[in-house]
């Protein structure tokens, strides 16, 4: 099994007629994902290499029965695109758009939380979701994944998500689903959402979790793991040697309450019984040993 998506998930691409949307949308389709349509206002009735394009998400959903959307539009239009998808009944939205203003992100998140509680947003500014051999929505290169499980991956940073897949695939360990949640301040889907889903998924036997400095989502994940996750978890936190980031003034420091350093996150995870690696390669090696012992 997989989490959030599977081989039957029907996907539309908002922004399919743009260069990035076309490249990645068609690549997802070539991977085997059921890419059933695209949406670009004003271009309804056309097609992109055989994939029909609609004027609105509503039209696309009515014609195709899609339940998932892949949003590849510029930051200026992405917030509206997300809300359009939610209003049209899409239940799983992947938005890869980078540089969405924080105010727009916070607004979209809260509108979804209040008005569309059944809709899950992955991202923005994330690589997407990949269930090897079944479904790939996003910008991850499908050939770096290995089907068959038993490891679930959840990662915050985009390119580190690829590194996580790569470390396991090179060592012959497959994945059930790989979720890149993105590193923006207000992510639609969190570590905890993914950990909870992996805990429920019978085919996932262990979880690889890649975090990074800043915020406190990793600390919250550690607390969740301690109480709710019975499967082995291996983690890596990027940024042990990173320069101190731009400090968000005093107000930011107060909000984070001293949390957010790599060490604080690693300590919290270790205390929750998580295997804490020092780099991505070591994380892969620890996971190989765990999978061997299953």
């Amino acid at each position: 099994m997989s989490i959030f998506v599977d081989e039957n998930t029907k996907v539309i691409v908002q922004g399919l007629t743009g260069s990035q949307g076309k490249f990645h949308g068609l690549r997802n389709k070539a991977y085997g994902t059921k890419v059933v349509g695209g949406v670009t206002p004003g271009k309804g009735g056309t097609d992109v290499e055989g994939v029909p394009v609609y004027d609105s998400v509503q039209d696309a959903v009515a014609a195709t029965g899609a339940t998932a959307s892949f949003i590849v539009v510029p930051p200026k239009f992405a917030p509206e695109a997300i809300l359009e998808a939610a209003a049209a009944g899409i239940s799983f939205i992947v938005c890869i758009t980078e540089y969405i203003p924080a105010k727009d992100e916070a607004m979209v998140f809260n509108v979804l939380r209040r008005n569309y509680p059944g809709t899950r947003l992955l991202g923005p500014n994330c690589p997407g979701i990949l269930s090897p051999g079944k479904c790939n929505i996003g910008i991850t290169s499908g050939d770096i994944a290995l089907a068959g499980g038993p490891v679930g991956i959840v990662s915050r940073s985009g390119t580190l998500t690829y590194q996580a897949l790569n470390e396991l695939s090179l060592k012959g360990v497959g994945q059930t689903t790989c979720v890149g949640i993105g590193g923006d301040p207000v992510p639609g889907t969190t570590f905890i959402d993914c950990l909870a889903a992996f805990e429920q998924d019978p085919e996932t036997k262990a979880v690889l979790m890649f975090g990074e400095i800043g915020g406190s989502d990793e600390e919250k994940a550690a607390a969740f793991i301690k109480e709710n996750v019975t499967k082995p978890v291996v983690s890596y936190i990027a940024g042990v040697t990173a320069p101190p980031g731009k400090k968000m003034g005093h107000a930011g420091a107060i909000v984070s309450g001293g949390m957010g350093t790599a060490q604080a996150k690693m300590d919290a995870l270790a205390q929750a019984g998580v295997h804490v690696a020092r780099n991505p390669t070591e994380a892969g090696e620890i996971m190989v040993d765990i999978v061997k012992g299953l």
């Binding site: 990662s155 915050r156 940073s157 985009g158 390119t159 580190l160 590194q163 590193g183 890649f210 990074e212 400095i213 890596y236 990027a238 940024g239 042990v240 040697t241 990173a242 020092r278 780099n279 991505p280 390669t281």
Partner: peptide, 12 residues
């Protein structure tokens, strides 16, 4: 490419 990978490269 990517802040996470860049930080991880520093770590390694």
């Amino acid at each position: 490419n990517g802040a996470g990978l860049a930080m991880s490269t520093l770590d390694v």
